[in-house]
């Protein structure tokens, strides 16, 4: 199942709706990396609220996507990691290093807004 990507102001929001096959994940990665350039987005939110399992492949792919988005000059934040999933991730030893996370969509947008003002001040 393809992940819908919505444009909201300077941001892109990808809401994962159900369990993703590897192909879906790779498609999400390619779509986000392309869209960030095309729409000149400053930030990306990936909502994983609907994911009941995040295994090592899914986690690594999401981490890769976050790094690629940063290389494209935008920020990415993962929102909605469920408590059970967080517990499993810690037990597995998956760290999501260098990837921003936030509780939910609202917090994710606040995080990106903060990032935008920070980088604005620096200029």
């Amino acid at each position: 199942m393809e992940v819908p990507i919505l444009k909201q102001g300077p941001y892109l929001i990808a809401s994962i709706q159900s369990a993703l096959s590897d192909e879906d994940l790779v498609q999400l990665r390619d779509a986000l990396v392309a869209q960030v350039g095309k729409l000149r987005s400053r930030g990306v939110i990936v909502d994983v609220t609907a994911l009941d399992v995040m295994d090592s492949f899914a986690t690594r792919t999401l981490r890769d996507i976050a790094h690629m988005i940063r290389l494209r000059g935008a920020e990415m934040v993962i929102v909605g990691i469920q408590p059970e999933v967080a517990f499993a991730l810690v037990r597995l030893g998956l760290k999501l290093e260098g990837v921003a996370t936030a509780l939910d969509l609202e917090e994710g947008i606040l995080y990106l807004n903060r990032k935008m003002t920070e980088s604005g001040k620096k200029r």
Binding site: D52, V53, D55, S56, Q82, E84, F87, A88, L92
Partner: peptide, 26 residues
């Protein structure tokens, strides 16, 4: 997850089981 849920596992355990199956199947 379905089978484990019938056995009465907690939702945290269901996630741990499903994650394990995912890793082994992968």
């Amino acid at each position: 997850k379905e089978m484990a849920s019938k056995l009465g596992f907690s939702s945290t355990d269901l996630t741990l089981i499903a994650t394990s199956i995912s890793e082994l199947a992968r």
